[in-house]
Amino acid sequence: MNFTQYLLIIVSGIFVNNFVLSQFLGICPFLGVSRKTDTAVGMGLAVIFVMGVASLFTFIVQKYVLVPLHIEYLQTIAFILVIAAFVQIVEMVLKKFSPGLYGALGVYLPLITTNCAVLGVAIVNAGQPSYTVLAAFINGVFSGVGFMLAIVLLAGVRERLESADVPKAFKGFPITLAAASIISMAFVAFAGMV
């Protein structure tokens, strides 16, 4: 793979095939942890980190364990175990060596195991025959950047909505979904670029 192809993966991950706004992956944290901009940034950073490293690990497992042994059907179980174990280890390491960072990211880490964007990117990577380990890693990191962009944008809108007079039935999730819809419309402009 050459530089242009890596660049395409990056642009595609952030804008064109944005995980949240055009592929509907990772909607739960997108709606649940987007009330304040600073928590959204924290969640975004944690997701970038976990998606990047999980892509690396799961791709290595797929390429050097599952495929040579012809047990591709165990993909889902193997990937979710790798992700859950990795998240658990990161949590323990952070708790021991970097309490500050643990305090900042700690609450989000366990939630990331059930974030479908992480398992999603692992399965997408495994389905790309032309991908190298580096390409899988880059795809993971920049899909995470796309997630962060979406969640920070939504958090900005929601902070404004706090002071808006919203009809009672629309309070909470419904108005947030309407806001997400408008953000998503803006991202339609990127469709077909890559």
Partner: peptide, 15 residues
């Protein structure tokens, strides 16, 4: 499209 998905979900939830 995705945008419509968010919108319909929001409106139906409000209803």
């Amino acid at each position: 499209l995705p945008a419509g998905g968010f919108l319909v979900y929001g409106l139906m939830m409000a209803a």
